[in-house]
């Protein structure tokens, strides 16, 4: 729809001589500003219409005329950015399923555009490759992965269509292999490509733009990739057993009547906390457990299976050491008699 405005404003400021600048001089004098990457901007398909009008006086009175109308259609600019929106590495553990990494895809072009998504779990330069389970679109747009609510993405079937300057959140769901160890990291990247087309900036697709114009690849090349990292947080425990002997003669020989004190030192290493650490040790065959000698961190425990952490089962001792942060040790002792 062409709109024509007729303006009949008369002179109201100082007059100037007729500008006779040639077009060439205009261009040479003009400041050349680099075009910054525009987010959205004028919507694709918008018509830019220019029309000038003039008023003047003749002997016959005032006259108003209009120029021709120049119409230019704004083409669709294909631009996209992808960013990892996780605050840092996403924690995982050996064999963990359902790792959730979050990415945001933003249409920085000026038309509605469908984007194809690809997750790459086999990037180089990292310690392990997780297995891709799913790419999921944050359908309810709450920024949180809701299993069974958010829609599983299938390339070419439900490519998200994003309006200019709008974003879509996508979750990449992966499984961590069992063989990884603490501090291992994995790079999981997400790539988004404009379905209309990609290429070097300036590449155009005739008639493919929204609103009937062309589509032109913008400065982002119409595709973008972002990296996100998984980091393994795992604990391991090493149990060290030692024995000291006190014989009836004040020496340290394993003779009948000697009492052996066993010491079990559990050392937790890695990152995080080892939960529900239980230390058990069978009573050596041929020896006799000395009742009431279980200690944990030098504190005496009872032999009964009760609220207290220690117990003697008849053939072995067991101590529930609880949750032990990495870097700490728990020491259990008990005594047996060599009959």
């Amino acid at each position: 729809m062409k709109t024509r405005k007729l303006l009949r404003h008369r002179l109201d400021t100082g007059r100037h001589s007729i500008a006779t600048a040639l077009l060439t001089s205009c261009i040479l004098a003009a400041t050349l500003s680099a075009n910054p990457a525009h987010a959205a901007g004028t919507l694709a398909g918008t018509d830019i219409q220019n029309i000038a009008s003039a008023t003047f006086d003749t002997a016959g009175g005032p006259v108003t005329i209009q120029s021709n109308t120049v119409v230019i259609k704004v083409d669709e600019l294909l631009d996209v950015t992808v960013a990892s929106t996780d605050p840092g590495d996403v924690t995982t553990s050996p064999g963990a399923t359902g790792n959730v990494q979050t990415f945001r895809i933003t249409n920085t072009g000026n038309g509605d555009e469908a984007f194809g998504l690809t997750a790459n779990v086999a990037n180089g330069g990292d310690d392990f490759d997780p297995t891709l389970q799913q790419i999921v679109i944050d359908t309810n747009n709450n920024g949180v992965f809701d299993a069974g609510v958010d829609t599983v993405y299938t390339s070419g079937v439900n490519d998200p269509v994003i309006a200019p300057d709008q974003s879509v959140t996508v979750f990449v769901i992966t499984t961590t292999p069992a063989g990884v160890v603490d501090t291992n990291r994995a790079n999981v990247s997400l790539n988004a490509v404009a379905r209309t087309g990609t290429g070097t900036p300036g590449t155009s697709f005739a008639g493919a733009g929204q609103g009937g114009g062309n589509a032109v690849v913008g400065s982002t090349t119409a595709q973008a990739t972002a990296n996100g990292f998984l980091a393994v947080r795992a604990t391991s425990v090493v149990l060290l057993k030692s024995a000291t002997i006190l014989d009836p003669f004040g020496g340290n020989r394993p003779v009948p009547g000697a009492v052996v004190t066993y010491s079990l030192v559990a050392t937790v290493s890695g990152t995080g906390t080892m939960n529900n650490l239980v230390i058990t040790d069978p009573i050596p065959v041929g020896s006799q457990y000395q009742t009431g000698t279980i200690t944990l961190e030098a504190a005496a425990l009872t032999d009964a299976a009760d609220a207290d952490a220690g117990a003697f089962t008849g053939t072995s001792i067991t101590v529930a050491a609880g949750n032990v942060p990495a870097g700490q040790t728990r020491t259990v002792t008990f005594r047996v008699l060599i009959p």
Binding site: R10, C26, G41, A54, F56, D57, E76
Partner: peptide
Amino acid sequence: LVTPGDSLVFVVKYKNVGTETASNFV
């Protein structure tokens, strides 16, 4: 091909093709 960020140059040309002088030309 015109996309957001493009620089445009508008040229308005005028010419008196009549038979008398025009004044107060705006």
